[in-house]
Design a protein around this nucleic acid. Structure first.
Lengths: 233, 233
DNA sequence: CAGTGGTCTAGACCACAAA
DNA sequence: TTGTGGTCTAGACCACTGA
């Protein structure tokens, strides 16, 4: 048995919701019924329901039943959700342009954030990201080079997380983000097609692997009038 | 029995951690031992552990044990944590100055965000918030007046959430926040002691009660060079 | 009232970590 | 190999909701 039963049930119920077998706002069958349908004990069934509740997909109401929630809550939290996903969920087409891709020595802040030595190399990438071909974000990402030296440029620049998890055997751990504001300098103004002095939302992100080693430091600036972060709790 | 057993155990273990009976990074006793100590089944004990894990207080390691986590993760998420709490946790002294407190008709955006009618009254409060007497944030909060008409000005302006939950019998539900950027206009510049055109972090927040009625709409502007939001996941 | 989710028991077997 | 957390069972009684 590869997957635990409660995960299988979780996935089945999720599919049933996607396939509109259970519709938004509607009540799903009672726990005792579902338990008997899946041939598991009620505790196991409840474990499946619990994970769906944690994802914001189901909502329990005491004495009344379990309902399909209207909101897809959790995943709107930024950071875990990539620019690509956010843009797509807004019904826009994401794209990006790689401005530079260099193996070099770390800056002071990179050294500190990535907890590496002067002698280590880093890979630094600059990008502009677009939604429907309108520039939204200028982004600099830095990665300790030894972590990715065996991957191709394309594997790194187009889907770093996936490459690291699937081909590198690494697991992503925690993410820390700082969000602030700044005004566009000349370089940012040019790259993002705004005037110098226009407001930008700034984001710094340090991502760690599950072994607590930092593997990525990102500094990004978003055009405030074209982008904002949304959080739901 | 007022509180469920697993909540009591949750609280007891939390106290034990606060009292350094279990220290950060250390392993706590095994589930079977704790279950027997508290005279409950292992499933019940696990439920208590689970809630502590969800709060980021404990960390399970398969095959090894359950450990006291070093990070107090969850609560750094902004919004749930008030300005007061954030400032205190930075070791600074929070204060605030109420600039205005008026019962009036809603603006267009207030009407929309709070889902109320033209004929309803709202309570609108303007504040500047300080950390160590340095102005950090200018904030306008709007509340449907009927929700708070029976409370005193002090109960509303100094601890709204507490008043609503303890004296109003309401329960806070979801919170949606949007974070962006802007530049200071003349009014903001004067109130926050910055120059016009300086970058501000903007936040809009709509808070709902557990019955899905919006009860608060807040627009806040933070001086970017003195404040940033931090998120950990 | 009947039906629902919330809590709880006293076991069981498994996979994984560390010695 | 021993001890740990992960999963699971087949019941039980409770408090709450809604007709």
């Amino acid at each position: 048995m590869q997957e635990p039963m409660y995960i299988k049930i979780h996935n089945q119920i999720k599919r049933d919701i996607e396939n509109k077998k259970y519709k938004v706002g509607e009540r799903i069958p009672a726990e005792r019924q579902l338990a008997s349908k899946f041939n598991v004990s009620r505790m196991t069934l409840r474990q499946a329901i619990k994970t769906l509740e944690d994802e914001g997909i189901l909502e329990r109401r005491l004495g009344s039943g379990t309902y399909v929630s209207s909101q897809k809550v959790q995943e709107k939290m930024s950071g875990i959700m990539s620019f690509t996903d956010i843009t797509r969920s807004n019904g826009q087409v994401p794209s990006s342009k790689l401005l530079s891709y260099r193996i070099t020595k770390p800056s002071l802040s990179e050294k500190e954030k990535l907890k590496i030595q002067d002698t280590d190399n880093v890979l630094r990438m600059e990008r502009v990201r677009f939604a429907d071909n309108v520039p939204i974000c200028y982004e600099v990402a830095t990665i300790p080079y030894e972590l990715v030296s065996r991957f191709s440029k394309d594997e790194i620049s187009s889907s770093l997380y996936q490459t690291l998890e699937e081909k590198g055997g690494y697991k992503i751990g925690s993410v820390v983000e700082n969000i602030g504001a700044a005004v566009a300098n000349e370089n940012e103004a040019r790259l993002l097609s705004v005037k110098k002095g226009e407001p930008l939302v700034t984001r710094r992100q340090v991502t760690e692997l599950s072994n607590h080693y930092p593997f990525e430091y990102v500094r990004a600036s978003y055009v405030a009038e074209r982008f904002e972060f949304t959080f739901e709790k």
